[in-house]
Design a binder for these strands. Sequence first.
DNA 1: CGTGGCTCCTGGCGGC
DNA 2: TGCCGCCAGGAGCCAC
Length: 263
Amino acid sequence: MPELLDVEAFRQYVDATSLHKSIEKVEVKSSEILGNVSAQELQARLAGRKLQFTRRYGKYLFVHVVNDIWLTLHFGMTGRLKYFKNIEEEPAHDRLLISFANGFHLAYDCQRKLGEVSLAENVENFIKEKDLGPDALELDFKTFKKILKGRRGTVKYTLMNQHIMAGIGNVYSDEILFQAGIHPTTKVNKLDEEMLKRLFEEMKNVLRTAINCQADSQNLPDHYLLPHRSKGGRCPRCYSELERIKVSGRTAYYCPKHQEKKL
DNA sequence: CGTGGCTCCTGGCGGC
DNA sequence: TGCCGCCAGGAGCCAC
């Protein structure tokens, strides 16, 4: 799940719950999720400090530790955060537990362990090392055209490639293409100026709309694809059965009527 | 540069 | 019922 809009919701969640509280204890419950940092170092750099402010870039969340370093969080397919008081409420796949002096806890829960937690001295360097493209939400149209120029891949692949632009995943690339009326396997270099503009505008619209819904697909507008994005699902506009194909190894859903294949 | 295949990991579901 | 393969919202690596 965790794409840009989910991570933005997590960021706001951390802001609302976990800042400016003394950290008493840090427990690494599954060291597999640690990036280039040991459990000992993570504990040493966080214990006794406070989380100060947050940043998001693409699908990464950065939490600044007072006067020191950034905690970096990536959520893989199944990662999420939970702030709670009673330890009985600890989520089932807690991999990192931060306990505050006020008795509350912040859990990084990640069933499939495909996420990554680490430390970074500098966010800009971190982004460079990961070779992330510009954040999809910050991108302007001029830059958008520039980064797509000369590319030969499919539009879905291009939207999802974090090195080209950062933040869009499999699910929301489907929504963006549905709203823009573009078939997922259309080659990027076949999109004319008008189509590029439409793709860009819908990318922004969809991401902003989803963030305004707190990334909860239940709250999305009626004409959105996502609530119907499953086997046998139907287009919310024309009731056609949605097609399901593989694009770049990922499952794509689209409406054959609203997203006609154009070569 | 792009594509397809494999890998990491865990768990739910459908089919036999 | 029980077991097994398949699949899942991320992403890196490799061969071609």
